[in-house]
Design a protein around this nucleic acid. Structure first.
Lengths: 156, 156
DNA sequence: TTTTACACTGAACAATATTCCGTATTTTTG
DNA sequence: CAAAAATACGGAATATTGTTCAGTGTAAAA
């Protein structure tokens, strides 16, 4: 399936505001709501969307520190890596994780209340996984979602 | 403003599916749609939501490689950092960036079509910024959003 | 105990979503 | 190039949902 300009516009608009109504989308594209509805339905069915997330205002929840935690494991068998991922999913405070090739095996985006919670997260929750070789945390001053993707040289 | 169990549930549900309708939310919470609507309105007005994003299926867009790019700058004056951020915002392929304290100044989550596009991104787009000291890219095998946050010891 | 504030519900109304059909436009095919 | 097929479109009808509001009950404050 090939995407035309209108499809791309739908993807772009929803990427930046996932709660746009069909009517609003149609207005932006200058097409009838029924037409827009059909296109969105098709894009959804074809699997162009992975998920729709609400980004919460962490400050309002009393979460004041965000860090990137680089983790290196001692071993890299599938079984061990899978159990580490399972552990990550059970931990409170992990917003997102990246499984990487290279020196660092995992990069974790962690959000916690304060420096004590961070200390506890690292020492009590993370470090007790058997195969951890190295942990290094960096405070995040600021992070931002850009969504600067392109399709056929058209920037979304 | 204090959040009760119902509020927390709304945040949690929308975090995982930002396109849930008010009716669906109300059904999950076992309250009337009108009540749910009022609560959501309040949460929105109070600024509990930063944004609503659609995560696109990158494979479907022909984007096959994701990398984390660690960038170290030579200098850290506000003016230089700001101009670097401005540059990031203008580049095609950056999904998200983190501005960090520590050895690495910026971590970029980059998505490109193939290894040639990556090479071009690094060499032609990124490396020509004047104050770059060091660039190191790591391939992302897998990344995942977890949203494991908590509020008053209640996991969202 | 009285008062006040607040969350809640259901009903009424407004707006939007969704379906469907006839038409126009484009693409394919002979 | 022309005929046929496929696709995209808009508008109207209907179904569903959003939104407002007044009244009720309950819990906190006076």
């Amino acid at each position: 399936m090939k995407l035309d300009q209108k499809d791309i516009q739908i993807l772009r608009l929803l990427q930046n505001n996932a709660r746009l109504s069909n009517k609003e989308l149609a207005a932006e594209l200058n097409i009838a709501p029924s037409t827009c509805h059909e296109r969105l339905k098709k894009l959804t069915q074809e699997g162009y969307f992975k998920e729709f997330n609400a980004d919460l205002n962490l400050k309002k929840l009393g979460i004041n520190i965000e860090v990137l935690v680089a983790v290196r494991l001692k071993r890299h068998e599938r079984e061990i890596v899978n159990s580490f991922i399972k552990k990550l999913k059970s931990l409170d405070g992990i917003i997102r994780f990246y499984h990487l090739a290279g020196d660092t095996d995992f990069m974790l985006h962690v959000a916690v209340e304060n420096s004590n919670s961070l200390r506890s997260f690292i020492m009590d929750e993370l470090a007790n996984f058997s195969y951890i070789d190295h942990i290094e945390s960096s405070i995040i001053y600021h992070s931002e979602c850009l969504h600067n993707l392109s399709y056929n040289n058209v920037i979304l």
